[in-house]
Amino acid sequence: MKSAEEIFEILKTEFGDSILVLDKDTPTEPIISVDPLQIHRVSKFLREHPDLQFDNLMCLSGVDDANGNKVTNADGDELIEGGTLSVYYNLHSVSLKHKISLKVSTSRTDPKVESVENIWKSANWHEREAFDLLGIFFLNHPDLRRILMPYDWDEFTTEVSRHPLRKDYKNPEFYQGMKVPY
């Protein structure tokens, strides 16, 4: 059973600069930030190290940080330019009973994060959902396509309506002949 600071120390000695920071300002749980393209190596280490043994990925969530500039485009929609999209990982160990949270941030215009699907198989559908609803690309994912929205959603929508959980999302008017807003 290890605390968050000890886990951070172990990771820092192993990986150096890819592990960015341990954020202890959040009142409830400390979060370790990791570089988006190194998350695969870090996760493999977390699962296989005998003192850590994080063999259970509890939750993987995509978040739109909405920390860019608000721009108004030609149609009068308010868009967000720049800023980041983040992915949060909550890990847990069944045998050693400790938990840790990781965070990865990537740019909004070209979001790319390495997939951890071959480490924890439960990440497969969670990453598909983050791709579907937020537009985050996961490299080396075996089957990255939409999971909750219809497969032909892209044909009936413009750029601002493609990924529903983004903060600047706008409803399309019609989908296959059915009116979408109330």
Binding site: T26, P27, T28, E29, M58, C59, Y88
Partner: peptide, 22 residues
């Protein structure tokens, strides 16, 4: 609530239900 994140899980009849709130 103050700024922060929380992940809390309960044992639902079907398994582990978790809420991740930012």
């Amino acid at each position: 609530p103050p700024k922060g994140t929380v992940y809390r899980r309960v044992e639902n009849p079907r398994g582990e239900l978790g809420y991740f709130i930012i």
